[in-house]
């Protein structure tokens, strides 16, 4: 590159930056919020003002996100089923390998944590993992929607809605319970019910993790000074990390507890009991 070309390049870059800054400053007033940041963040948590009408029902934006995410995943799965899977080869290509890795990873997680019974578990954690991962990445797209009050909102991740998080937490608990009952009948049910705090902890863990991400993002976007460079890290990196971590945590916990409650009961031999009793009596003496 000659000196002349370098000068032209630098002038163009400087002009573009100046134009962008001018535009940002001039358009700042157009996007002034009606609510304060406190009210906005309260809305993110409680969704009292930004409900969306779904066939006459006032629902949280997270539910609309959930439907969209499900639709996208199912359309993708249908396309893959029709056009890709019939052309699978013994020596896989890149996309086939990606699909096999995804399915194999969740199948392997189920098999390693629950070696005795894992057929249904593998399918469940695959669906849950895909839902959490893609649902969390969904907030990066920034799909707009109109609220019942006529305001515009950006659709959040489905699981940043407390109802979505409770659904997945409780459903995971029910899956664990069903695995316990299927493998060990009443003993399995007892083992699962012993962990009664599990649905609450799983639900609120996921809700808290995703909500905190949404709150931080909202906070960052609320200030002009934080709108340069930082959203790239906060918006993309944190969201991607959230997606991976939350998908892994819920699926791992579910498969772990499922394996624990579906483990076959092994009766302790009598000799050990007798030995224990005799050793206790010796200690007492």
């Amino acid at each position: 590159m000659t000196k002349k070309q370098t000068c032209i390049f630098l002038i163009i870059v400087a002009a573009v930056i100046a134009a962008l800054i001018t535009g940002i400053v001039l358009t700042d007033g157009l996007y002034e919020r009606d609510a304060t940041i406190q009210e906005t963040m309260q809305d993110v948590v409680l969704h009292e003002r930004d409900k969306i009408s779904l066939f006459g029902l006032a629902v949280n934006p997270g539910l609309i996100s959930a439907f969209i995410v499900t639709g996208v995943i199912l359309v993708f799965a249908a396309i893959v089923r029709i056009f890709v899977i019939p052309k699978f080869k013994l020596i896989p290509g890149k996309f086939q390998m990606l699909l096999e890795q995804a399915v194999g990873a969740f199948g392997g997680l189920a098999r390693s944590n629950s070696p005795h019974k894992n057929g249904f578990l593998g399918a469940y954690i695959f669906a849950a993992g895909a839902y959490i991962f893609i649902g969390t990445l969904f907030e990066l797209v920034g799909v707009p929607a109109v609220t019942a009050a006529g305001e515009c909102v950006i659709l959040p991740a489905p699981l940043s809605d407390i109802n979505g998080a409770i659904t997945l937490g409780c459903l995971s608990y029910l899956v664990i319970l069903s695995g316990g009952i299927a493998a060990n009948r009443l003993r399995g049910a007892g083992r699962t019910l012993k962990e009664f705090s599990l649905p609450v902890s799983m639900s609120f863990r996921m809700f808290g993790a995703l909500l905190s991400g949404a709150l931080v993002t909202e906070l960052v976007y609320s200030y002009l000074a934080l709108s340069f460079v930082l959203p790239v890290i906060v918006g993309v990196l944190f969201t991607v990390l959230h997606a991976i971590i939350q998908a892994y945590v819920l699926t791992m916990l579910t498969s772990l507890f499922y394996g624990e409650v579906s483990e076959p009961y092994v009766k302790k031999p009598k000799k050990q009991r007798e030995k224990k009793v005799s050793s206790k009596t010796e200690v007492v003496q």
């Binding site: 539910l63 799965a77 893959v80 399918a123 695959f126 849950a128």
Partner: peptide, 30 residues
Amino acid sequence: LNIDWQQILLHLLNFVILFAGLWLLLYKPV
């Protein structure tokens, strides 16, 4: 926390559809 049982059921319905679809279209064939 504005927990809504109706929306929980809607989320549940949504996830059941997703689970069934993914199982039939992707997980089982792969």
